[in-house]
Design a protein around this nucleic acid. Structure first.
Length: 182
DNA sequence: GCCTGGATTGTCT
DNA sequence: GACAATCCAGGCA
């Protein structure tokens, strides 16, 4: 299976264009990997995004070049992983909400405290399974490093379900969640 | 400096 | 179906 790292140009487009095309791509973290099946788009022109109020120490990575990882900590116990998209300075990102395990399933189950099922079907869970935390903020997913985004030749699903985003309190009506049906 | 709220999850009823 | 757990960033005094 030919596996190549996703090009930065692919990600340096509008989050609403990149988000549905990320479905089917594979996120690799060391020995573990998972295929992206659910994402949400966030842009600085809508209040649900962390970047809405402009750059801050936490969100400055979202305003940088596309292809970097933005990890934030929420609710005191969960991490969520985003891929920075758009042009330099746009403040856009695509939240990775769910994966299907491809490699390293055993290690993921170990990190998930032995639970073998539902390893990566939520934004907080996939970060735990892939051992992503705040220290991974700013990692370049296009550089072919330990944590990277790859295309294994699988095309995006022919049918993509679009729904409003989950778990937010602002701009709740924007249909910016993209899901690959099972 | 202090106070508030959050792009969630797991567990209990 | 409802709620508690728990820490950090951002806003405001």
């Amino acid at each position: 299976m030919a596996e190549r790292v996703v090009e930065r140009d692919f990600l340096a487009r509008d989050a609403l264009v990149v988000a549905p095309e990320l479905l089917g791509k594979v996120l690799v973290s060391g020995p573990c990997a998972g295929r992206i099946v659910e994402v949400e788009a966030y842009r600085s022109d809508e209040p649900a995004a962390h970047s809405f109020r402009g750059p801050t120490p936490r969100t400055q990575i979202m305003f940088g070049p596309a292809g970097h990882l933005y990890v934030y900590f929420s609710y005191g116990m969960h991490h969520c992983a985003n891929v920075v998209t758009g042009a330099d300075g746009d403040g856009q990102a695509v939240l990775l909400r769910a994966l299907t395990p491809v490699r390293g399933r055993e290690l993921m189950a170990e990190r998930r405290h032995g639970r073998a099922a539902h390893l990566t079907d939520g934004p907080g869970k996939l970060c735990q399974a892939l051992a992503l935390d705040l220290s991974h903020t700013g990692v370049d997913l296009c550089a072919g490093g330990d944590v990277r985004l790859v295309d294994d030749g699988t095309p995006p699903p022919s049918v993509i379900v679009t729904t409003p985003r989950i778990g937010i309190t602002k701009a709740v009506d924007l249909p910016w969640r993209f899901v690959a049906p099972p």
